[in-house]
Nucleic acid binder design. Structure first.
Length: 160
DNA sequence: GCCAACGTTGGC
DNA sequence: GCCAACGTTGGC
């Protein structure tokens, strides 16, 4: 993806699976982004996520979908262990230790923010183009460019 | 619960 | 390689 522009990442999680509070309760406030089974999303992690890239932590498929926290990419890509776990819903019989099909990165949560709901997000000038707002978007990881990131800043109110 | 949109699968 | 069928996602 030559010339592909990104600055930060928006990463979606269902709070019933892993919420921002769950991550804050984990060691070093860090979580492995397991369970991605979409090639485009995988490729973002494999090829483009860099340690230190800013992350918008987003809750999806819930009563109040939206941005709930700020974090950063905290590891290089590495094989997603759940692909080898026969008891996991993310098990992939076609994946091998020698040739893992799925990778993940660690995400470190820095702090929570006051919810920026998807409805509010749609109204922020400069954020209209965000992938997460596009019809039919289903990627769990989407790039956020620098202009979108800057446009968002006044709306990100830190919460402890 | 509805339903549009999308990715994946598999027969041909 | 085409494409219909199917399953999943996710906001509403």
């Amino acid at each position: 993806m030559a010339g592909f522009e990104h600055y930060a990442w928006l990463m979606k999680s269902e709070p019933s699976e892993v919420s921002v509070d769950d991550v804050l309760g984990m060691k070093d406030c860090k979580v492995g982004w397991f369970g991605v089974r979409n090639y485009q999303a995988r490729n973002f992690m494999r090829d483009l996520c860099k340690i230190g890239d800013p992350v918008l932590f987003y809750h999806s498929s819930c009563a109040q979908p939206g941005i709930v926290g700020i974090g950063e990419i905290a590891s290089e890509p590495y094989p997603d262990p759940t692909q080898f776990d026969e008891t996991s819903e993310y098990f992939d019989a076609k994946s091998t230790q020698a040739k893992p099909r799925w990778v993940q990165v660690d995400v470190h949560i820095l702090h929570k923010v006051k919810l920026v709901s998807i409805a509010e997000l749609r109204t922020i000038p400069g954020c209209e183009g965000m992938r997460v707002l596009q019809k039919g978007n289903r990627l769990s990881i989407t790039p956020v460019n620098e202009d979108e990131w800057k446009a968002l800043q006044p709306h990100l109110i830190s919460q402890t």
